[in-house]
Amino acid sequence: MARVQRQTGRQLDSDHEGFLRHRRFRWLKTALVLCGIAVLAYALTDPQPRPNGGTWLGYTLGTLGAGLIVWLALLGVRKRTMTRGAWSLKAWTSAHVYLGLALIVVVTLHTGFQLGWNVHSLAYVLMLLVIASGIFGIVVYAVLPAALSSNREEMTQPQMLEALRAVDRQLEDAAQPLERRWTEAVLAALAESAAAGGLWQRLASANRDGATRQAIEAFNRAGPDEAADPALIRVEALLQRRAAQLGRMRRHVRLKALLEIWLYVHVPATFALIAALTAHVISVFYYW
């Protein structure tokens, strides 16, 4: 029996278990217990004149929340060293996610539902922003890799780039016999890059109209005798391939941007939060 168990254990170890379901949701359960205790304490105590951050429960929840925030932020330091076991990076990440979510309950109860236009609520809102961006990150990490993979069709990023270059080289070569009005369209198409644009264009739809599409349309409008020209047919086919490759790359860029963008909110907002938290704690006692 013991042997079977050991075998089972070994099998579990070898199976991939993501950070979300690490150790059968150990940290989810921990976070739920923490929230339960906080809610229960809030419901059972009757602070006078009203619940807020200045009661004993308020100070306790506030200290807990501040400690959690600092510890959660330390994931940025911790993730740079990978270890195994109970304190593995995976365990740490799992705790980061679930304890981070528990902060919503702990810190909301710390506020006693008193919010205003002040540094205290700023810290609260920044914390919610960090948590919301973290939730977004988890969702895109869960959903997007499959889409990324199916879009990639087993091509690596350098291969995608190389593929575009290969098409471009052939286009350049194939367009040599064409007249000027055709070569201009081809040149414009060649100038269109996969990564054109900043953040918003990256996040926008991948199926946008570009010089390559316009060139294809121009070739489609060619007269009947021109349309029979094998050079023209070849260039148009190459342009089609270019457009398809561009579309794939842009989808890839968009999915990658979605996978990365949340960290551009999560990390800076965390630092703003730590700063606001510092100001919150100091100001509360400065004007005690």
Binding site: L122, P268, A272, A275, A279, I282, S283
Partner: peptide, 11 residues
């Protein structure tokens, strides 16, 4: 930038 801005403005 954000952290320092918050610290300067609010502390």
């Amino acid at each position: 930038l954000l952290g320092l801005a918050v610290l300067i403005a609010f502390l």
